[in-house]
Design a protein around this nucleic acid. Structure first.
Lengths: 345, 345
DNA sequence: CTGAAAGCGCTTACAG
DNA sequence: CTGAAAGCGCTTACAG
């Protein structure tokens, strides 16, 4: 064996020998599965301390058939929502001494999804969390064994038995209604592609317009390249029927504002523009951007906890908690980028 | 064993049986360590295909004493640079079929660093990547076994044998010089706390001022709370000797601009302000924000590759490649937020 | 080239 | 409560 010499971390046998007990007893002490006499407990504790022993999670995993690991499957690793959610998962996992594996999915290479999932499962994680905002996430679900603890983040309500969703649609509806309530006759929408569910900002935008019987101008879809959003802003700036715009995210919103200005349209005086996500910079914009904040960090945190409940129940051999869909509420942040519409102005 | 019934993924023995060979032969086929006869290769391939067999990385890790995993230790998980770098590491790892474990470090709980490192090592990763931008990262290095392949990201040049650094200091110097070249007599600096190395934007800012013999006003240090940066902007706006500001990052820059405006100071007409990081939104600001872009994604990618070289060499039993410090260059993005300073205006 | 054997470091019935 | 034994699913000398 040419590889990895050197490592000489103590193993359970070393602890057992030093404590004068058998390895299984050390194991029992460590896992608390069976009582160990007080006297041996003390000796074992001392030996562990002395040796700086740390059990091998790999060996443990081979015996237990699973690791204290949660695997997260997510497309769009560069998205704000993804990294925030990841962070929340990691935070919660840390508290339970679980490790997080991130396996990114590639929307543009759907054929790779199965292999990616297999790879993620190859470490025999105790459970999986899938961000179901896109096609890759949805497809990934097909490849997960039915008996693996799973929590889905995002997507439509009830798309999975255990799910953490945000009230995206409701939020989109709220923002649009807000603009309509200010007197705007309709609201234009510039957004990155809508996900394949019916719980999106865009669905909410449409809901509001339909509810009020407003004219619906189809959304202008842009990519992450903000130049496209700025171009959309310019296009909108050339029409005289545009008084309000709901941008699908804050980055898009600021780009739209820029495009509008290039066409001499002031925000909010000529056109009201609101964003979504309530990113850090939104409040610093001029005008300070009105937006709607989602709590992705909290979503990630709850996703892990929900998963952990299942893992725990399974390990304890008890019934898993019942299916549940948790909604994490966001909240609007009203600022200065939208204004009342007065027709005769 | 109450736990995890159900799973019945095929194991190597199943493949061996179906192919009519022994398990070690399947293993050799899989790893290509020893030649396997053409005829058996075909039978094994077929069996694997038929069974949908995927080797257990856990079992493999127990034999090999390490996993095909890279563990990333990083503080500040919410920082832009961290998530971009993570993304780069994951991308490169994916290409080598390595999994990434993210273990976050807590700057505000330095006592937990050792435990976090132990936890990260417990999966016996093939190597580690440490982001050395802060005290927690530096401390983590102390707890890594000397024989574990390691790559350090960030920090000062030569802080480690294998390192990926960005030319932070040089970039900070460049931006400051740029402002000085425009005629500004000195440049104020608003920034989040400087890291504990001498390769930071702030060091570069100081270099430039010293080189030109300009007056050095101590940096105004702010947190991630942009309100603080806005307050700094207001404070700066009340002085009449402020004509140029170098903000340590784009978020801080826009907040400073807002603060300046609240004091009736226009950007760039009255005060030039430049940022750092060249975030997506920078170009959309008004005025479009001049900034300096670092390529964190590339840094992450290279960090993994550098690590992989070591892992590979070690597994092949050959000499590891020589120590190396790779510098990833960034580039300035000149836009509209700074302007020539004309004293008599 | 290939198989039988032993081992990686744990855990869990199985018997006291 | 505790130890000897067997097993988790691989890999690697060891002998052909």
């Amino acid at each position: 064996m040419a590889r990895s010499t050197g490592h000489s971390r103590p193993v359970i046998k070393d602890v057992a020998r030093l404590a004068g007990v058998s390895a299984p007893t050390v194991s029992r002490y460590l896992n608390g599965t069976v009582k160990v006499s007080e006297e041996k407990r003390a000796r074992i504790a001392k030996a562990i301390e002395e040796l700086g022993y740390e059990p091998s999670v790999v060996a443990r995993a081979l015996s237990n058939r699973e690791m204290d690991t949660v695997v997260v499957f997510a497309a769009n690793p560069e998205a704000f929502s993804t990294s925030e959610t990841n962070h929340g998962v990691e935070k919660a996992a840390r508290a339970c001494r679980f490790l997080m594996n991130i396996v990114s999915l590639d929307e543009s290479d759907m054929d790779s999804v199965e292999a990616r999932v297999r790879m993620g499962l190859s470490v025999r994680p105790a459970g999986a969390i899938v961000y179901r905002y896109d096609r890759a996430g949805i497809k990934a679900l097909d490849y997960l064994p039915k008996d693996l603890p799973l929590v889905v983040v995002g997507g439509g309500f009830g798309d999975a038995d255990r799910q953490i969703v945000n009230a995206e649609r409701e939020a989109g509806r709220w923002m649009t209604m807000h603009l309509l309530d200010l007197g705007h006759e309709t609201v234009f929408h510039v957004t990155r592609p809508k996900g394949p569910t019916d719980n999106t900002r865009t669905d909410g935008w449409r809901d509001a317009l339909e509810e009020r019987g407003a004219v619906i101008h189809e959304p202008i879809v842009v990519s992450r390249d903000l130049e496209e959003a700025a171009a959309a802003g310019r296009a909108l700036g050339e029409r005289d029927d545009v008084t309000a715009v709901f941008a699908g995210d804050d980055e898009t919103a600021v780009a739209v504002i820029r495009g509008l200005r290039e066409k001499e349209r002031q925000v909010p005086d000529d056109v009201s523009v609101v964003g979504f996500d309530d990113r850090n910079f939104a409040a610093m914009w001029s005008p300070a951007l009105t937006s709607y904040g989602q709590n992705y960090l909290e979503m990630g945190r709850r996703a892990f906890r929900m998963l952990y409940e299942q893992v725990k129940a399974r390990r304890d051999g008890v019934e898993p908690p019942p299916a549940r869909v948790d909604v994490v509420e966001g909240q609007p942040a009203l600022r200065d980028s939208e204004i009342e519409y007065v027709p005769w102005r």
